[in-house]
Write a protein that binds this DNA or RNA. Structure first.
Lengths: 121, 121
DNA sequence: ATATATATAGTAATGATTCCTATTACTTAA
DNA sequence: TTAAGTAATAGGAATCATTACTATATATAT
């Protein structure tokens, strides 16, 4: 993967927020620094950064969100304000049970807990 | 919700499979019985059946899959063959911990375990 | 049987994402 | 340091799932 200013910028934008942004949000932020960066470039680089393990994707509903946090973790989504926050769940035991009961090797665990955050209950 | 032949057919199609089908697959099956049913009708009825609690939605990647099984459960997805199968995970304890540690009330739990099923490991 | 409101078919529109292509810009080796 | 080779880009078109629109059809309460 050859260096590019665009990719570095995109990575910086993601690292600078905890909001689990969408591709379009990242695109708009990036344009503030590089006025003619294109949306296709954003998508291509998000894929590359993901493949390189430098960022994480969360596929939520009909669109993807991106996360600088590459340590395995899960998400809480507030159904009132839409905010997504991180949560660490030890999944070793779950994986082990699934292997024993279903002969299924778990590589990746995706959990979203939908509910109401502390601001709305 | 007024009776309609289309909605009944769509519900039957879903109840007749364990494959967690997409809207388009359901549409194609339905057309075998009702040649000019339209895709919009399928989507509208899938929403209505979901709202009525008669079926379940799984939002997987960029599209939705539907499930006759309305008892809360989770899914295993094989990254080789794409097959999705059901798994029951007792989540009461997890919900309780999340409530205590994050002041977050969990209403719905979505888990997908991606890995390799018994046919591919 | 009739009125009325909900559902439908068919098609257009939307929105996220991917694809295409001519041009630009990293990088390497002379 | 420069030239060549190749990966990356901008800009726009294409794709695919889903939703919106609208005139017509149909369920159902009276």
């Amino acid at each position: 993967m050859r260096y590019s200013r665009q990719r570095e910028l995109i990575h910086e934008v993601i690292k600078a927020t905890n909001t689990h942004p969408t591709a379009n949000w990242i695109y708009k932020q990036a344009r503030k620094k590089l006025a003619n960066i294109s949306l296709g470039t954003v998508y291509r680089n998000l894929d590359q950064l993901t493949d390189a393990g430098m960022i994480n994707v969360i596929t939520e509903g009909n669109m993807s969100r991106y996360d600088w946090n590459v340590i395995p973790h899960q998400h809480l989504r507030c159904s009132v304000c839409g905010k997504m926050s991180d949560i660490e769940i030890p999944d070793g035991e779950i994986k082990e049970k699934i292997k024993q009961n279903h002969q299924f090797d778990v590589e990746k665990v995706e959990m979203i807990f939908v509910g109401t955050c502390s601001d709305h209950n």
